[in-house]
Every structure is written in structure tokens, then in C-alpha cells.
Design a protein around this nucleic acid. Structure first.
Lengths: 235, 235
DNA sequence: GGCAAAATGTACGAACTAGTACGTTCTCTT
DNA sequence: AAGAGAACGTACTAGTTCGTACATTTTGCC
């Protein structure tokens, strides 16, 4: 993507003198700025004019490509979801032993959420809107969630090997992992303020990562109803 | 609070002919309507005019009592937090055996979050705003969080009794419980849409409540680092 | 009973905000 | 090379939204 590549002309040249057309770059530039704006300020709080200003182009182009503020917001959301799904699809956990596979999956989820606060914020915002925008999205509806299948295979392998006794479903397990990782980021600000514990601190992060992994693993090894006590002491 | 109680005159009489002043009722009426508005639409999405319209009084009074849209929003947030803290303070878990106390606490947290979606939404919204309003609140800063002390006593008792081996901190435990209960409500809409599992369904709710309880209990009984395998199999 | 302060109502304005009408430049195709 | 359509820029508008100036009523108190 060099400046003299004829297929991708320098996008900053979308200004007045000697303007070069570059639809894809213009579109992506708008999306990048819009993602930041909406993630920071929400859908209602985000301003189309503010987005346009920080763009290489003008407000006119936002409406040219995305039709409306809502259209732009939805496009941002769709790209954010596409991103995480694409990365999830590269997860190759089938060669690991079940417990290690689960720990690796938790590691990935934890780190991804931690590093993509924008995504977390967009999802929170969309939930505030009761997912009403997402309902209209054919893009998001058609993104198949391979994590669930991945987890399903790991659980099967673990049960066959006799290391997992809990009959938990893949979706429920995913919910549990996501909930913890997501909450740490999404509710960081109020939690830190109330409980005086900085959830963004590196040592806290490491401790929490180990904690959720331990909790999930010991849940999977327990039978799902009775306490996980060694048989000799169970009585 | 009958209509002819002289200390609490009928609040609906705050209209034109034969108007009766009733500052407390007017204030609370505004707060009730505002909570609904902000919980539904967020701070930026909420409209002062819309709130005023659904109130027994006028917009003028919103500014008379709360100064600004932000002041009103903060008052709503403060009351929501005061509510949950007040109820938390009535929790009396010290007479239960440790495991039962933890299960009861989880039960309470789960049910409270489930039944107070408004609170969940307000907290989510405040986190979208990076808790910037809450930072200015002396009210919320001075609400001491007794759950943490409660959990601390339960953990101590459990360790003394030998049922809990995990050295987890009260705050970390609270985080873990809250995360799951909160997420189920806060992210219900996107999760349901993507994973085709209605998180509001009664049977799902019951299953999840049992699941989080089992996970927490087996975490507490494990030693916090090694997998919770019976010694004979641990090798 | 009258007065000062608290409580309330009405009408309006200044600033913001999503969206558009209209015009220009670029680029691809033939 | 020329014409058509895609890509882009400028300036404006109609409607909204927070907030307030101004006027009135109620109520506690001496």
C-alpha cells in the first residue's frame, strides 16, 4: 500500500487541488473515525459533524456511502463483529489436550477483550439500544460463531478422556468466560471507583486471568451439582 | 400516604387551580420519570423535555431542583446506588455455614440484577461515560460497600472450617459473581441475537444460577492453582 | 394578616445537529 | 477523446434541545 501504487492512490489526496478518487480508502477512513466517535460517545452522543471533521473527506461523503447516521453506526458495528469473528476463526485448539485448550481459549478471550476496549464499548452501547440496530443487520446475522463449535469439540474430547465430568453446554461455557472477561473491561470505571481496585493494573489483570481459568477448569471437572470434593472426603 | 394526610398532600394537585406545594413528591416524581428515561435512552439520548412531559410538573422544576440535565442524571444514579446498598445491608449471612452463605449471596445477587434491569442499564451507561459523572458524586463515594466485608467474614469462616482452600480476595470473588450476573442482563440483547439463546427465559435463568453457584463453590474449594482433581488421580 | 421565601407555571431563545440541494472533478469505457 | 457516471466539496436549512427570563401562587412565620 505505497503511495505510488496505482491501485491505492494516496488517500490524503482527496482534497481540493489535484484530487484523486479513492472510494475504498475514503469509506474506511470514515469508518475508522466513526468507530472511535461512537465507541467514545455512544450512538446518540456521537456527532456526525465531529466525525466528518476528523475525516480526510466531508460530511457529504458519510451520507453518500452510509445513507444516515444510523447506517454509519451499523457499518461500524458490523466491522467490529467481523473483526473478532475473523480472528476467532484462526483459533486452532484441536491439537491441544482438553484442559490446555480451554486455558488457551480463555487466554485468547481475556486478552482480546482487554485489548479491544472499543469493541467492548460498542457492544455495551448496542445493548443499551436493546440491539435494535443489530436486528436489521444481515451481515452480523450471517457471521457464524465458530467458537461455539470449537468449545463443543473440546468438551467432547475432555469428556471422552474423562477429565471433564460437567455436562455444561458450549454456549453456557462461552457465556461464563465472556461474562467475566467482558465485565472487567466494560465496568472497569465504576468498579474501580467503588471498590478502589484498578482493574486495568497489570498484576490485577494477571491474577484475574488465572482466577477465571481456575474457576472454569474446576467447574468442568466437578460433576455440576455436588461440591468438588475428593471422594474420600465427600461424605 | 393517603390523599387526606395533611403531611403528604396529593401530589397530583400540583396543577393550576388550587395548586398545593409538595416539594418532596415533586422531586421524587421527577426522579422516577428521569430514571426511566435515562435507563432507556442513556444520558445523551434522554430528553429533558420528554421527562418534563411525563412528570406531574414542568421542566422549570427540573432545573429548580436539579440545576441541569447532568445534575438530574447524577441524582438518578445516586438513588439507584443507594437503593442496592440499602438492601445489601439487610443481608444477614453470618448465621449460615460458609458454603450455604455463598450460595445465598449468589442467589441474592443473581435475583437482584435480574429484577433491576434499570439499575444494570444505568451502570452500563455510566461506564460508557467512563464514570465521569460518578466521580463528582460525594453521595456515591460515601456509600460504604458492606458486601465486601460480608464476603470477607464468610471466606474467613470457610477457611477456618477447612471447606475453602482458595486464597481469593473478597473483592475478586465479588467481581466474579457480579460479572456473571450483570453480563447476563446487560448483554442479553446482543447475546440472544447472536447465540440464539434467550437469556431471559425462566429455565435458562435457573440453569445459569446453578451454574455460577457451582463454579464459585468449586473454585473456593480448589487450592487456586492446581486443577481440582481427587488426590488419587492427580499424579 | 401580611410578608418574605419557597415552589411553581409560561413562553421564549440561542445553539446545535442531522440531513440535503446544488455544483464540480475524476475516471472508466468505448 | 468524449461522454457518462462515480466520487467528491460547499453552503445551507429545518427541526430539535437545553436552558432561562419573567410572572405567579403557596406557605411558613412574626
Amino acid at each position: 500500500m505505497t503511495a505510488d501504487d496505482p491501485t491505492t492512490p494516496d488517500a490524503s489526496a482527496a482534497s481540493k487541488p489535484g484530487r484523486k478518487n479513492n472510494p475504498e480508502a475514503t469509506k474506511q477512513n470514515i469508518l475508522d473515525v466513526a468507530r472511535e466517535e461512537f465507541a467514545n460517545l455512544g450512538f446518540s452522543g456521537g456527532r456526525v459533524d465531529a466525525i466528518a471533521e476528523r475525516t480526510r473527506t466531508t460530511k457529504r461523503m458519510i451520507y453518500y456511502y452510509f445513507g444516515s447516521k444510523e447506517g454509519l453506526y451499523l457499518a461500524v458495528l458490523e466491522q467490529a463483529y467481523s473483526d473478532i469473528r475473523r480472528i476467532e476463526n484462526t483459533l486452532d485448539l484441536d491439537n491441544l489436550e482438553p484442559e490446555q485448550a480451554i486455558r488457551t481459549l480463555i487466554d485468547f478471550t481475556f486478552d482480546y477483550q482487554e485489548q479491544h476496549e472499543d469493541f467492548i464499548r460498542l457492544v455495551s452501547i448496542e445493548n443499551i439500544h436493546r440491539a435494535e440496530h443489530m436486528k436489521d443487520s444481515t451481515v452480523i446475522a450471517n457471521l457464524n460463531v465458530t467458537v461455539i463449535d470449537t468449545i463443543g469439540r473440546i468438551l467432547d474430547a475432555g469428556r471422552t478422556a474423562g477429565v471433564f465430568r460437567n455436562p455444561i453446554s458450549p454456549t453456557d461455557l462461552h457465556l461464563m468466560i465472556s461474562a467475566f472477561c467482558f465485565f472487567r473491561v466494560s465496568n472497569r470505571h465504576t468498579f474501580t471507583l467503588i471498590f478502589h481496585q484498578d482493574l486495568a493494573a497489570p498484576d490485577t489483570r494477571a491474577r484475574h486471568k488465572a482466577m477465571i481459568a481456575d474457576a472454569i477448569i474446576s467447574l468442568l471437572k466437578s460433576d455440576g451439582t455436588a461440591p468438588a470434593l475428593p471422594p474420600a472426603l465427600a461424605m
